[in-house]
Design a protein around this nucleic acid. Sequence first.
DNA 1: CATGAATGAGGTTTCATTCAT
DNA 2: TATGAATGAAACCTCATTCAT
Lengths: 212, 212, 212, 212
Amino acid sequence: MPADTLAALEPRKTPVQARAAVTVEAICEATIQVLLSHGAERLTTSRVAERAGVSVGTLYQYFPNKQALLFAVFEDHMNKVAVAGEVACERACHQPLADMIQQLVEAYVNVKMDRADISVALYKVAPGVGGHAVVERLGRRLRKAIEAMLQTATDVELPPDKFAIDVMMAAMSGAMRSALESKASPATFRKMREHLVLLCQSYMKAVTTQRA
Amino acid sequence: MPADTLAALEPRKTPVQARAAVTVEAICEATIQVLLSHGAERLTTSRVAERAGVSVGTLYQYFPNKQALLFAVFEDHMNKVAVAGEVACERACHQPLADMIQQLVEAYVNVKMDRADISVALYKVAPGVGGHAVVERLGRRLRKAIEAMLQTATDVELPPDKFAIDVMMAAMSGAMRSALESKASPATFRKMREHLVLLCQSYMKAVTTQRA
Amino acid sequence: MPADTLAALEPRKTPVQARAAVTVEAICEATIQVLLSHGAERLTTSRVAERAGVSVGTLYQYFPNKQALLFAVFEDHMNKVAVAGEVACERACHQPLADMIQQLVEAYVNVKMDRADISVALYKVAPGVGGHAVVERLGRRLRKAIEAMLQTATDVELPPDKFAIDVMMAAMSGAMRSALESKASPATFRKMREHLVLLCQSYMKAVTTQRA
Amino acid sequence: MPADTLAALEPRKTPVQARAAVTVEAICEATIQVLLSHGAERLTTSRVAERAGVSVGTLYQYFPNKQALLFAVFEDHMNKVAVAGEVACERACHQPLADMIQQLVEAYVNVKMDRADISVALYKVAPGVGGHAVVERLGRRLRKAIEAMLQTATDVELPPDKFAIDVMMAAMSGAMRSALESKASPATFRKMREHLVLLCQSYMKAVTTQRA
DNA sequence: CATGAATGAGGTTTCATTCAT
DNA sequence: TATGAATGAAACCTCATTCAT
């Protein structure tokens, strides 16, 4: 997505006043509600405003257009996911590689599971909102956290490179997406978590070994 | 997806005259062209018809609505991918596990790479078209082919179960999707191919070993 | 309705061949079927043709346009009604006024009752098809029959004039229409028949008396 | 008419600002204008909007679809007719039967005559708009008023029952419809008025007598 | 600041009718 | 003569966005 397109998605005014912050929050929350109840194609700015208990005009005071609204909601969600990953990385430092991966993967699966329906709803709006740009940006952030973590692995000399980490993340989120879209049961999610741990561990190990 | 939603996507009439078959093909082809040149949100039925050199009315003789058209094109693409996978599985029977996986993954990566831009375009229409249903259906088909192949592995006693295969496929396609959406270079795709082979091989091996 | 509009509604070719007559009959019958099953706004020439087991092209060989088709069906129905009325008038000659009216009204109610659903269906197409012109034409025919009948009444010197007869017919058909559109029960129709007999008898008597 | 069909005809939003009320009124007025100048089949929502001096979008803010618009206009007209009848009934209480009927019928004929062209135009839209439901509803209302009036007749012990009243109303409106659709002259309407008075009077009297 | 009425371009879809085969 | 594929004008309706109050 080009730079000026991104610019056009920035929130219109920073909520300096408390009331404004509340309004913005209500609008974002309403967006998710409408997304869940009506679906992506039935999401209209009026419906969101109505659900949020404000007028359309007010909505447009805080978001320059519909895309920006969806973008904000999407980014917020991705941010939470990234933060969960970063926290996990922080905590998992100075441990063996396998343990690190386990904690990272479990943190990721958990945070997505907890927000299963939001995730599914957002998968549907991402394409029309430059979702990939956000994914890449936050992907880079998470990758850095992972890199840093891996540097401290107690049993690895030369940790996996950026590329391998990206592949791992993409595989992990792809698998999760598939499970989420299938409306998998909690039991399935638990099984999935184990398998993804195994998958990432073995891939990381293979990458590390191969180099040596 | 509910039954009647699927029904609403069924092609409206099967061409009985030769002329009609040509028309349908032209419309599908035009759909891809428009998708590539204008993007998913700029794709309109009139534009497709115009590009196909027919009138809108003709388009609607064969597809009951826009969704159905996109659905047909999407399904066709997924079908080709599934077939490529099945062919690879067929050929890779009676070999060691690692070789099988390598051929399967390479076939998958290649077929997606060859249709990189169509793939990216279709990622954007899939959500609005019940894409997940198609993905699941064809996923099951491919999984069966993989299961059958794995039964013949020369170095494995108890091959990976359905779940593991699904996880592998989801991881693989998730990683590919990420690369495709990033408009990765051919070189990157080649590197990706190697890595995905490694990822899938090590996961499959891990799953197999763990059981024993 | 102007003369040339009427001309445009004439069937395109007279079915000289037996096969053609069968086809025309099938198309008219299909029109009624579609009217009953899909309603007036869902009636399309293609649907009629399909139901009749012929192609649209064939339909257009016998009817210059959709209006003409509906017109023909409507006229046919009205014709049957008029004939039933005429027959009743014929039979009721040389009787007291009240008996005449009774037989006429009962004949009318019966013929409409027997074709209740067709009647209702046709009420919906009549406006778009110049129905009023047909109604007037056949109304005049029926009125003449009634006039002739009344001339022979055994107990009336100066029979009711054209105007009164028209009022009576309009009242009668208006009441019937109301009952038909309400999907009245057979019992209600029987009661209605009695009441309409009474209504017409007393009106005719009043008109006759008043004059004298 | 099923419940949800009726629901689909409900006005979309009630104007809260004064400006909006004006707009709605303008749209309804324009609907009648277009109906009169272009006819029922040439009535399009854009034409109505244009005539009303607003955009189509505005029209759709107040009416969910074309049907609902026509329904509203139709209902409004019928309402005026019903009110005229009710007022006449109110005024005609405590009088002999024949006088009551005279006043009622004259009120009905007058109100329809005054709106002759609108009436004719609306006859054409009624079928496509669930007109019969409205007719029945307002018919019941008017019937109640008539019943109440008849109870106070100074010369009748047991007044006509609901059924007879319904028959009378149906006959009366059927006859009026016929005259209106024939574009009858004012003189004819006056004559009609007299005849309908006679018709209803004699029917009511007959019904009353018969019982006793 | 908030409101919500108004805008109107633009999209989807239908269907009467024609005409080459 | 029958077919049915093709036409395309024209209808309906939506919804992001603006702006007077």
